[in-house]
Structures are given as C-alpha cells and as structure tokens.
Design a protein around this nucleic acid. Sequence first.
DNA 1: CTAGATGTTAAGGT
DNA 2: CACCTTAACATCTA
Length: 250
Amino acid sequence: MPELPDVEVFGAYFKRHALNKPIESVTVTSKRIVKVSGIEKKLQGKSFTKVKRHGKSLFISLTKGPYLVMHFGMTGFLYAYRDKNPHQKHSRVIFHFKDSSHLAFVDYRMFGSIKFLEEIPKTLGPDALSISKPAFKALLKKGALKAILMDQKKMAGVGNIYADEICFQAHLLPSHRSETLTEKEKSILFVTMHRVLKKAIQAKAEPSHMPSTWLIHERKKNDPCPACKRPLHKTTVGGRSTYFCAHCQK
DNA sequence: CTAGATGTTAAGGT
DNA sequence: CACCTTAACATCTA
C-alpha cells in the first residue's frame, strides 16, 4: 500500500496528530522496525517540528538533531489515538505525547523502518512529483518501462501499484523497452505520472475514491479492463506482479 | 496447506 | 564491470 500518494497522506496525518507536541516517552514493541539504539532517550522531551515526504519516506524534523525517517514497507501506517482508545493490533512503535495523545506506527509485516538520518540519502533519486521533465526523460534509456518507474535510485515514490496504473493510463505496456519510446511517448508518460499521483493524493490514496476507469481496482487475474472490458493479463515485470490490458496498452 | 502480497536489499547469475 | 533476476525478510489471507 504505501507508495507516494499513501505516504503523502500519512504525512498530512502526522502533521495533524503529532506536530509540535512534546514527547513524553516512546514504546518500542518490535526492535526490528527501529534502526536506532536508545530512540526513547533521543526523543524524550523533544517535539516533531516539520514533516516532509521524499519518495515513500517521511523525513521528520525534531527540535534539534537529525531527521527521524519513517519508511512504511509493505503494510505500515500511522494511527493516532487518545488515552482510552483501543490501540491497533500490530503497533510496533508508539510515541506518547505529554498531552496524553499517542501516535502508533503500525505494521503487521514489519518491513517498515524508523531511523535517524542527517539528510536524504543519495541512494534515493529525485521525488516523482518534483522531478523535471527533462530529468525524467533522461531516465528512460534502457530497460523495461515499469522497472524504471519503480527504481527508487532513479526516481523515488512510484511502486508496483502506481507503476501499473501509470502505464495503463499512458497506454504503454509495462514491459515496453524504454529505449524504443518516442519523445512524444516519454512526454505522455511524464504528464500521466504527474496526473495519476496528484489525483491519487486528492482521493486520499483511497482506491474507492478513485475513478472507476482506473486499473487500481482490478488486481485479480481475468478482471476486466476498465476501458475495453477484455480480460486483463498478469505477468512479472521487474520481479513484481503486473497487470495490463493487451488491447489498450502498446 | 500453499502461494502470493503494495518494498528493499543482498546475493547470485549472465 | 554492468546489468538483471531471485531470495529473504514476517505475517496474513485467498
């Protein structure tokens, strides 16, 4: 679930529920998630002052010191609650604020991570919503189109679900070799990516709020293409399960 | 019971 | 060496 649009929504949620509140304590239930030793001491008494998203990560500024960086893996999300609320089943880290509210980092599969970093790591490419058109086009040199869209080193933010969606709406096959794309197709791809990500954010990253013409609703074998109703195909591209319409995408 | 699932990364192969 | 593919991680569900 957590690709760029989802993490953008998590960022807004974090802002609403966790910004500028002194931290009373931190509970770590799963050490695996937290890549920082002594996180409790490092956060105690400080406040989160700013959040920015880059790709699929949140970079959270503290009163002082490096960023607290959250990555949500495959199944991570945030959950805020007050004293009496029951907390989520798979809370791995809980931030307790002095005003007696709490924010839980929930992640049943534990592929998420929380760490401290001084800056955005160089292993991450430019954010998919900030990258310029020429820089984007320059990435489309070699390899399967979808693999490039998902490569976080080249460009950060697009994952498996939205890569399929972008290819579908751009009428291009995920397996399309990028070296054979025309300039025009590259432009269409760029514009489509931007539009898909923006709309997904407007829909709060909630598929049920996205147009029924989107591929995102159809991720079972033989589901009908939202455009032409022919059955979709399933393959593997870049090592990930991929859905596409052989009729609508070239 | 088995296979597969939205991500990342290390390891293996060409 | 560069590039691509696969396995592993932990847990749940179809």
